[in-house]
């Protein structure tokens, strides 16, 4: 029973479903929505790495999303660069800005960091909105090209675009998986848990936080660049604080500080919002209180709740097994403990 739920199997299953999805539905609209969800997920992972695993709540991530999107937009539309060159350059730009911002931002802590990034996000939005000559201001950037073909692979159809985004998402998940399950990830978690303790065991918190921040902005920028090339039109609104709040909602509902939280939360909310058209405008009537209730009652979201329920179930079974004299203790309890750590 427990074997089926093994993380590796679950991941493989998810990948298979994701790969087969466009073939199953035949509905290009669904494929479109799913592609958008994947794009958001990448950004949510950026937020998760920083807030969930390192303990720093950044409220500027929509700004970095917008930097990624606008960089690729400006480079292709205005500077006439080729797509992939612009793509890579836009990621670099996001990282460099992320590095500079991080250097200043991490002089502050906790509340100051959140307030600082909140204001920074607003500055980024304001710059995009007001700098007409570069960003076209409120008119927005129109005619961003779709990804150029790589050799024989073309990205003109919705479905090929879907696979391209899926490829990047899987890459991001793989990177996250490896980070979290490594010494490096333990280092970040140690910082989240107690920065003082982390310092006394010789962890350079500044260096690690900065690395996380840059990688986190990289994810946000990647998400933005993919968004721009998928939607082909961007306006200043993509840098607005409400986008950060959206990302945060996806993360919290799915489970902050869990590996699969961004997947669960984003899919769920994006689909719910799509199902309830016209609800979009008032979605925060529900998601606002949900956010608040979650941090009070289920601070680790759906994934956290399910995994702790699962752990309890396992330990109960284990307990019964111990009471009844049986041969060997199965690997289940070890797995359950692993579950707690990984979520």
């Amino acid at each position: 029973m427990a074997k089926i739920f093994k993380q590796r199997n679950m991941i493989s299953l998810l990948i298979v479903v994701a790969v087969l999805f466009p073939l199953i539905t035949n509905n290009t609209y669904y494929v479109h929505v799913m592609t958008l969800s994947f794009i958001w997920m990448i950004g949510v992972y950026g937020l998760n790495l920083l807030a969930g695993y390192t303990g720093y709540l950044s409220l500027a991530h929509a700004g970095f999303f917008a930097i990624g999107a606008y960089s690729i937009g400006i480079l292709t539309v205005k500077a006439g660069m080729n797509f992939w060159g612009a793509f890579i350059l836009s990621l670099l730009i996001t990282c460099v800005i992320g590095l500079v911002v991080g250097l200043i931002a991490f002089r502050t802590k906790e509340h100051f960091f959140a307030i600082y990034t909140l204001c920074l996000g607003y500055i980024l939005y304001l710059i995009i909105d007001k700098w007409d000559s570069l960003t076209e201001g409120v008119r927005g950037l129109i005619g961003i090209p779709a990804p150029a073909s790589i050799g024989p692979i073309k990205f003109e159809t919705e479905i090929s675009h879907y696979y391209l985004v899926l490829f990047f998402l899987l890459l991001v998940v793989l990177i996250m998986y490896r980070i979290i399950h490594s010494l490096t990830g333990r280092t970040y978690i140690a910082i989240r848990n107690s920065e003082d303790l982390a310092k006394t065991i010789g962890i350079s918190t500044m260096k690690n936080k900065l690395t996380v921040f840059v990688l986190s902005t990289f994810f946000a920028g990647l998400s933005g660049a993919l968004y721009a090339s998928f939607v082909r039109f961007i306006g200043p609104d993509i840098g607005a604080i409400s986008i950060t709040f959206d990302l945060l909602t996806y993360l919290l509902v799915g489970g902050i500080g869990t590996l699969s939280g961004p997947l669960v939360g984003t899919t769920l909310i994006v689909w719910l919002s799509q199902q309830l058209q016209g609800f979009q405008e008032y979605r925060m009537l529900i998601f606002g209180p949900v956010l608040t209730l979650l941090v009070i009652f289920y601070p680790r979201g759906i994934v956290g709740a399910v995994s702790s329920w699962y752990t309890k179930l396992i330990s109960k079974k284990d307990h019964q097994r111990i009471l009844r004299p049986t041969k060997v203790r199965s690997g289940a309890s070890i797995e359950a403990e692993k579950e707690v750590k990984e979520g």
Partner: peptide, 16 residues
């Protein structure tokens, strides 16, 4: 981090 997120939730609700 929790009370900040909770406050944001209230903010989003009241605005909506």
């Amino acid at each position: 981090i929790h009370d900040k997120i909770a406050a944001i939730g209230i903010l989003l609700f009241l605005e909506a």
